[in-house]
Nucleic acid binder design. Structure first.
Lengths: 236, 236
DNA sequence: CGCGCGATTGATTCGGCTCAATAACTGTGG
DNA sequence: CCACAGTTATTGAGCCGAATCAATCGCGCG
């Protein structure tokens, strides 16, 4: 991790996008926020914050990808969520006034802005649209985690893997030739769906043999989307 | 479900307790809230709201116990949380502006007050302590669910069962003779830790044989708390 | 060009599920 | 207050999904 040249929030393309938490903040205020933040660069594999530490602020992803995970008692990681440009990380711990329950590490080289918690509190107090946005964001997250719990408890690894591929497609998009725009290691996939690396490999090979997907190194190409939906066996 | 005589919020012992979401609301406002609510009685086993329905308000538990759960594709339920007196249910869906993702059913006869969503919005807008309380509450919940996901993915059923008994002890307390103050069916226990009813029964019998717990019908008596901690193998 | 980690494949084991049969309990109506 | 019906709990047998352990492969990097 090292400091990098300043990125001005009021010019940030990620914030303009509309689905950013910072979207309701007017430009003048955004400049103030910008003055309090630090711009950082993390190489692939570096850790942004550790489980157990006290949070001091939130992280806003300018570019790159970051995994949020929890290390179990046997040293195995459980990935809870993967973030990309425009996403904000670490607000949960601040807002609940607790230590970090999860760690965050980059899975790609990433530029990330650190915004101190005082700035966050200020925004919440002075901008009710912003605080409603936060409430809505956390509420949605909570809904998602409830679904994950059910999936973990009731679905087979096969189903969970198929569903993960669909989720990754939605979250990160695909190239013209249907390659999912995020490259996870087999272990990271295993850590996300909660199984062993070997099982992940075996199932991916199976999907490939069935011509549902194709594997080009870490790249995953979706060939038969319908089949993937079938396998995933999604309820709603 | 049927209507019951009105319970005045400003006299509610659950709110006075201090850890209620409604604690920051001053008495005058509380009387207003009280005027907008409906007091309801649900017999054991009745459903308070269904997954997929649009939420119209929140539910505040006066007495009784309610399970919040999600029905998987095979018809098996996953219990996410159990509520008791003083707890508020259903705010997540309202705040995220989504349909209910989970259903709620009583596991005991329960008196529950229904507060329309307009009242909730009004409280959030006019009382920043209340809205900060909500943010904190949801953030804590989100932390808890992250832990549950990790447990589901990494721990054995045996460990999860032991941990559940410890959680129930903390949440509902125990009598003088160490009986946990909540009586779940074997199926409900299974639905909480995510396993089959038979496995739950087998493990409970094992714990009983080992003199870790005793079983008196649905009542569970904790004999060897330390052993339970050992089995649960809790990380932190 | 060789080293080392991530990926792959095979063999074996085992936790937990399903199916099935029986026992104990709960509530309900006569 | 008791008998019956319908749950809920218990126990056993057998099976299977997924983990573990072990060995090899191969790509990416210095």
């Amino acid at each position: 991790m090292k400091k990098t040249p300043h990125l001005e929030c009021s010019n940030c393309p990620n914030i303009k996008k509309g689905n950013s938490l910072f979207n309701p903040i007017e430009n003048k205020k955004l400049k103030e926020v910008s003055d309090t933040k630090k711009c950082l660069f993390f190489k692939k594999g570096e850790t942004v914050f550790y489980e157990g530490n006290m949070p001091t602020g939130i992280y806003c992803v300018f570019s790159g990808k970051i995994k949020l995970y929890r290390t179990g008692s046997e040293g195995k990681n459980q990935i809870i969520k993967i973030f990309q440009k425009g996403d904000v990380i670490g607000y949960r711990s601040i807002l609940s006034d607790q230590r970090h329950i999860l760690s965050a590490s980059t899975i790609e080289d990433s530029f990330i802005c650190f915004i101190p918690k005082e700035t966050l509190y200020d925004l919440i107090k002075t901008n009710s649209n912003f605080s409603m946005g936060i409430i809505k964001k956390i509420s949605c997250e909570l809904g998602i985690t409830s679904k994950i719990i059910t999936n973990m408890a009731q679905k087979s690894v096969r189903e969970r893997l198929a569903e993960l591929l669909l989720i990754l497609k939605t979250q990160f998009g695909i190239t013209q030739d249907n390659i999912i725009r995020v490259h996870l290691s087999r272990e990271e996939i295993a850590d996300t769906i909660g199984c062993s690396t070997e099982t992940t490999i075996r199932l991916l090979s199976e999907f490939k043999k069935d011509k549902t997907i194709d594997l080009i190194g870490k790249k995953i190409k979706i060939i038969d989307l319908n089949n993937l939906f079938q396998i995933a066996n999604i309820s709603e």
